[in-house]
């Protein structure tokens, strides 16, 4: 119908447009996943605080500063008074701590930049996960080797569900350094294994033994947890399957 030249041009245009759309779709589909866009977000904080120094070298437990994570949905960023508890003596003149001292004297909060952020239509309860003896490392990565904190896991819905469905493959059980209460004393030699799970087979054991009573989405399963013995001590629970009910996480 057309001349040979136009015909060839037409063919090439159609092919080229198709290829561009296909490549674009692939790039958008894979490139916009949370593990590409979110993982590795590492903002500079107003105070150059190093978890590598405080946790890795000084072995200060996570809950020393993030106290209250056992009771609260939100894991608190420590108040300035927690910093000043030690830094009123240690490095009291350091210019890096100028902002902390100002905050302490004037009562102005330090504006830390938030690294891990979930969408506002879901809720995540730290206390529930801590009391199920799930280590901080499961979601926050190796904090003890990070000088500046970066997001380590995608925090997407698929990622959450992968743990709720197959906890034994993903969850790292409590380590001594996290300060998570397991209901039992630490083994005698825990000081040499501060950064390793206390009972590395805990989740596997529980998942193998404990089966949900109801349909899994309601998250009720058989356990042999003793009833809380002392009022006021947050009793640990066994790690197991998480609920898959939509309303477990979504408002």
């Amino acid at each position: 119908m057309f001349s040979q030249r136009i015909d060839r041009l037409l063919k090439r245009t159609i092919l080229g447009t198709g290829a561009t759309i296909a490549v674009g779709a692939i790039v958008l589909y894979f490139g916009m996943r949370n593990d590409v866009t979110d993982v590795g977000y590492r903002p500079q904080q107003p105070v150059p605080f190093s978890h590598k120094l405080h946790v890795g070298q000084l072995q200060i437990h996570c809950q020393y500063c993030h106290a209250g994570v056992e009771q609260s949905a939100h894991s608190p960023v420590p108040t300035t008074s927690v910093c000043m508890g030690c830094h009123i003596v240690i490095k009291a003149e350091s210019p890096k701590l100028q902002l902390v001292r100002e905050s302490w004297e004037k009562g102005i909060p330090i504006q830390w930049r938030r690294v891990h952020k979930l969408p506002d239509y879901v809720h995540f309860n730290h206390a529930r996960h801590i009391r199920a003896q799930i280590d901080c490392q499961s979601c926050h990565g190796n904090v003890e080797i990070q000088g500046v904190i970066a997001q380590n896991k995608p925090l997407s819905m698929g990622w959450c569900l992968s743990c709720h469905r197959n906890p034994e493959e993903h969850i790292i059980p409590a380590r001594p350094i996290s300060g998570i209460f397991t209901g039992e004393r630490l083994p005698e030699d825990f000081r040499e294994h501060l950064f390793e799970p206390i009972n590395s087979n805990l989740v596997k054991g529980v998942a193998a033994r404990v089966r949900p009573i109801t349909s899994p989405q309601y998250g009720a399963w058989e356990t042999d947890i003793p009833t809380p013995v002392i009022a006021g001590i947050p009793h640990p629970k066994l790690p197991g399957y998480g609920p898959e009910n939509c309303s477990a996480c979504h408002y």
Binding site: H61, Q63, Y64, A67, P176, G179, I180, F181, T182, G183, E184, R185, L186, V229, I230, I233
Partner: peptide, 14 residues
């Protein structure tokens, strides 16, 4: 034993 375990946990932390 349970209270002592809790005591150890909080002592180690704080």
């Amino acid at each position: 034993e349970y209270v002592l375990a809790r005591g150890q946990n909080r002592f180690n932390t704080f």
